[in-house]
Computed example of a mutant assay.
Amino acid sequence: MLQSSESEERIRELLHRNLEEVFGEGDDTRRRAAIDELWAQDGVLHVPPGVIVGRQAINKFAGDLRATHPHYVYTPQGKAQVLHDAGRLAWGSGPRGETPEYTGWDVITVRDGQIMALYVFLDEASEEFRRSAGTP
């Protein structure tokens, strides 16, 4: 049986920092610096609109998404879970201090301490919100 070389602490850190510093960051320079640190060069983002490959494309997607709701924050819902080289974290997004407008799960796989892939699962009601709001 193979053992994961990724630490549980690092995977939890990646989940939380990606939520806040990539998808929650409105400043393009800070977001890009976080992506360079947290994401593998050939990282893959799986989101409802499609598959996005590479740091530059991930930065563009995150920036475009952020621009649709610049006053929203992402808030972890519960604790991150880790299994081998993967982790998942439930989150909500909406105006600070209010009930989240939409919720979902981030599931990542990690290689060499960086995010190799992120799968974003939106909860059913969130899919309806996304379509009605015209967000990517």
Rank of each mutant, 00 (worst) to 15 (best):
E37G: 10
R12V: 12
R111F: 09
T29R: 13
Y119T: 04
Q3L: 13
I58W: 03
H46W: 01
G26S: 06
R96F: 12
A62R: 01
G92N: 09
R111Y: 10
S93Y: 00
D42Y: 00
P100L: 04
H16V: 14
V120F: 01
R32F: 04
T103L: 09
L122M: 14
A86D: 07
R130W: 04
G43Q: 06
T75K: 10
K79E: 15
T68I: 04
L14P: 03
V120D: 02
R111N: 11
L38S: 01
V22C: 06
P95R: 10
E20G: 02
G63L: 02
E8F: 03
A80V: 09
Q77R: 14
A80M: 06
G94E: 01
F121C: 06
K60E: 14
G92Y: 07
P49W: 11
E8Q: 12
E37R: 15
L38F: 10
F129L: 11
L89Y: 04
F61M: 09
G26P: 07
T99K: 15
D27W: 08
H16C: 11
T99V: 12
E13Q: 13
V47W: 01
S126I: 05
E128T: 15
V51W: 09
W39I: 00
F129V: 15
R131A: 15
V107D: 05
E101V: 13
A117S: 13
R12W: 01
R17E: 15
V51N: 00
H84F: 08
G104R: 03
G78T: 09
A34R: 00
E98A: 13
Y119D: 08
F121W: 10
L15N: 05
T135I: 15
L15G: 01
R130H: 04
I11D: 01
S5L: 08
L118T: 13
G26Y: 04
E98M: 10
A57M: 06
A62H: 01
G24V: 10
Y74C: 02
P76V: 07
F129M: 13
R30N: 10
M1Y: 02
A62K: 03
F121G: 00
